[in-house]
Amino acid sequence: MSPARQPRQVTELGVFLRSRRDRLSPEEVGLVRGGGLRRTPGLRREELAALAGISIDYYVRLERGTERRPSPAVIDSLARALQLDDEELAHLRELATQADRHATAANVATSRHVPLGVILILENLRPFPAYVTNRIGDVLASNPGGIRMLAGISEWPATQRNVARFAFLHPGARDLYVNWEAQLNGVVAGLRRLAAVEPDARDLRSLVGELLVKSPEFARLWERYDVTRYKQGSKTLRHPDVGDLKVNYQVMRLEGADGHSLLSYYAKPGTPEHDAFLILDRLEPVRPDDPFAVSALESLDEDAPR
């Protein structure tokens, strides 16, 4: 491994430690704030090292990326001192494991091919809106309602349709998501977790670089370094076609599908949300030539050998 590539992966551990250290005030961990000007917004390095029961020199090496093999005991002590929740602790452990590994290949990328079985699942979920994404959030396949839930994304070419790109850069996203900030948090957290284990993946670096340049909101949240996972929950939407609705969703990882996930919305029959799903499922496509606009089975029929 070349010396130039190793620090980038190791440094991710230091970046995460620094982000959590900056969030904690001395008062929150039972310390008395001393007099004079504090240059750091949160805990000082020596304060965190003392709380974790490790030497300041050792902690500095961890944060700078020169210490590559922190023990599980040290990681757990730091987690307690930083008051990490379960997901943050899991992420810290993953970073510690990755710290002494070789950097991931720069050409890491998942296939855009969606297996026939998944296409059939999308079709049979109708009228529940559903779509499939790859590991960086590219929308690879959808049933009619699924693509319409991302109101306006069909205006973009299929290869540009990405959940993060839509949330931060599409002009309609801010109106669509009533709690826009919460939606953004989830999107950035997913990319942050992925960047920790695939720091050199070209497709991920390209997407993150684009969003850092084009969106101040993304840059702010990227710096904040949230890692919360959103596998299920609800969203309040102000949809241009069906109005205001609160929808539930479930995210499912597709095993054996090269990092793909399926997100499906759901609602009880007879509710306004279910009625809205029926409407979205039956709307005429914005672009009739769009492969996402026709049903999954119609797409398969067109591709079938004659």
Rank of each mutant, 00 (worst) to 15 (best):
Q9V: 00
K231F: 15
V163N: 11
A151F: 12
Q9L: 02
L48N: 07
R61L: 09
V60C: 02
A130H: 03
T66E: 04
L37H: 13
Y265S: 11
G243I: 13
R282M: 01
S19Y: 06
H113N: 09
K268F: 14
T133D: 05
L280N: 08
R161G: 10
A219M: 02
P305N: 13
K214R: 11
A267V: 10
E12Q: 07
E198V: 01
L78V: 07
A109T: 05
R39D: 07
E94K: 03
G270R: 11
R165D: 12
L194W: 05
G137Y: 09
V74W: 03
R33C: 11
A158I: 15
L116Q: 05
R21E: 10
W180M: 13
Q9A: 02
D281R: 00
L245D: 00
E155R: 12
L204C: 01
P115C: 04
S77M: 07
L62S: 09
E198T: 00
K268A: 14
E46P: 11
A304D: 15
A196M: 07
R282H: 11
G34V: 12
D175V: 14
L24D: 02
L125R: 11
A257M: 15
G30P: 05
S25T: 15
R64Y: 08
D85M: 00
G256H: 12
A103M: 03
S206R: 09
M1A: 01
Y58E: 11
G14A: 03
R38H: 12
I121W: 10
E47N: 02
A196V: 03
L221D: 04
F168V: 12
L278G: 13
S234E: 15
L116S: 04
E12D: 04
A90Q: 01
T40C: 07
S264G: 13
L24H: 14
D200Y: 01
L297I: 15
R39F: 03
K268L: 15
D175F: 15
E88I: 00
Q183P: 01
T66W: 06
R220M: 08
T40P: 11
R20I: 09
A96G: 06
E223Q: 10
R33S: 06
V178Q: 15
D138Y: 02
R69I: 10
D289S: 02
P291I: 00
T271H: 12
N107R: 07
P216F: 05
P129Q: 08
L82A: 02
L82R: 02
A96C: 02
L169Q: 14
W156K: 13
V247Y: 03
A195F: 05
E181K: 10
T236W: 14
